[in-house]
Simulated scan of single mutants.
Amino acid sequence: MHTIEPTTTDGAPMAGWRKSSYSGGNQGECLEAARGHATVPVRDSKATDGPALTFSPQGWTRFVTAVKHGELSA
Rank of each mutant, 00 (worst) to 15 (best):
64 V>L: 09
50 G>M: 01
44 D>L: 02
54 T>L: 13
59 G>R: 06
43 R>H: 10
51 P>E: 05
32 E>M: 03
32 E>W: 13
41 P>I: 10
66 A>I: 01
64 V>R: 10
40 V>N: 01
60 W>S: 07
46 K>L: 02
38 A>D: 15
31 L>H: 09
44 D>A: 00
59 G>F: 07
35 R>P: 03
35 R>W: 12
27 Q>T: 15
66 A>R: 06
59 G>T: 05
65 T>H: 06
33 A>I: 06
42 V>N: 03
34 A>E: 05
56 S>P: 07
63 F>M: 02
23 S>E: 00
28 G>A: 13
45 S>H: 02
54 T>M: 05
40 V>K: 03
46 K>F: 13
54 T>V: 12
50 G>E: 07
63 F>N: 02
62 R>V: 09
20 S>H: 01
49 D>M: 00
62 R>Y: 11
47 A>L: 11
57 P>W: 15
22 Y>S: 12
31 L>Y: 12
35 R>Y: 12
49 D>K: 02
63 F>V: 04
24 G>E: 00
28 G>C: 14
42 V>D: 04
25 G>N: 13
26 N>M: 11
21 S>N: 11
50 G>W: 06
55 F>W: 10
42 V>C: 08
52 A>Y: 11
26 N>R: 10
60 W>G: 10
59 G>E: 10
62 R>G: 09
38 A>V: 13
64 V>I: 10
49 D>F: 07
36 G>L: 11
41 P>Q: 05
44 D>N: 14
31 L>T: 01
40 V>C: 05
60 W>D: 09
21 S>T: 15
45 S>T: 01
27 Q>L: 03
53 L>Y: 07
46 K>M: 02
46 K>S: 09
41 P>E: 08
59 G>L: 03
60 W>H: 09
24 G>R: 01
33 A>E: 12
26 N>I: 01
42 V>T: 02
44 D>Q: 12
28 G>I: 06
25 G>C: 13
60 W>M: 00
37 H>E: 13
30 C>W: 04
41 P>F: 15
47 A>D: 15
